[in-house]
Design a binder for these strands. Structure first.
Lengths: 130, 130
DNA sequence: ATAAGGGTTCCAGTCACTGGAAGGTCAAGG
DNA sequence: CCTTGACCTTCCAGTGACTGGAACCCTTAT
């Protein structure tokens, strides 16, 4: 398969697939003309990567997940631990964003939003109270 | 004030303050020895920036917020619109992360997490069902 | 004289791509 | 045979918001 074909099959841009080769996530063969030649296995790995990335795993996590995927003797505990760590990071990020949103919502609610200059949002940013 | 003093006063690392000068958010004077010399106004701007960044505003948003802050004839509506847009981006991000977390939680719950290789997480990533 | 603890600049790296330039390859149509 | 267009190739640079480090200067105290 050419890069265009695996791109269509995996939903990943060709640029991204080349990048994944650069960082060693995949190692497609090369044809006589220098074109990359993707096997079915490569195509499956790319689908795997696309899904893992869409779940927010870092590329380093993807590397570990791929090697677990290919390791027939793996322990599912290792996969689970990795996924749990990722969930924890996502949860922390969500909490951080919710804290921001709560503060912003409160400020937005206080702001008249008219043509006058008085603005509780700017006053907060300037450190009026804290 | 020296950079170390405004860093302590604002809570921002000196490196970050130099970076903010690089991108034109602040323009401190220079002393005879070449050292930056921060005015009270600069110090106030840095506090403002630290707070705005902690609320997740981008540096470009910060630039706009600073110019509104300094514009005595501003309309609070402009500030509010900017803040609302930011809240919308945060909300979208939270939803994206919640979607990921829900999918991951479901997978983690299904995984035995023992020393056997069978793993619903990897099966999902490989595209078992979808 | 020197050492410590500021300050300065500039360069490189982070993460995961993305855009663009310059050029090679291939199949189809005139 | 030539061209056109759609592919493919490599390499370089940029994104955002810093952060680390090297190499060097300034000030004060010992």
């Amino acid at each position: 398969m050419t890069i265009g074909e695996v791109a269509a099959a995996s939903g990943l841009p060709a640029k991204t697939i080349r990048y994944y080769e650069d960082i060693g996530l995949i190692r497609p063969d090369r044809g006589a003309n220098g074109y990359r030649d993707f096997s079915e296995t490569d195509a499956r790995k790319l689908v795997f990567l696309a899904r893992a990335r869409s779940l927010g795993f870092s590329t380093e996590d993807c590397r570990r997940l791929l090697s677990l995927y290919e390791d027939r003797g793996r322990a599912s505990a290792d996969v689970k631990r990795l996924a749990r760590g990722h969930v924890a990071r996502i949860t922390a990020k969500i909490e951080e964003l919710e804290t921001m949103r709560a503060a912003l919502d409160a400020l937005v609610a206080q702001c008249h939003g008219d043509e006058r200059p008085a603005c509780p949002i700017l006053e907060d940013l300037a450190g009026a109270d804290r």
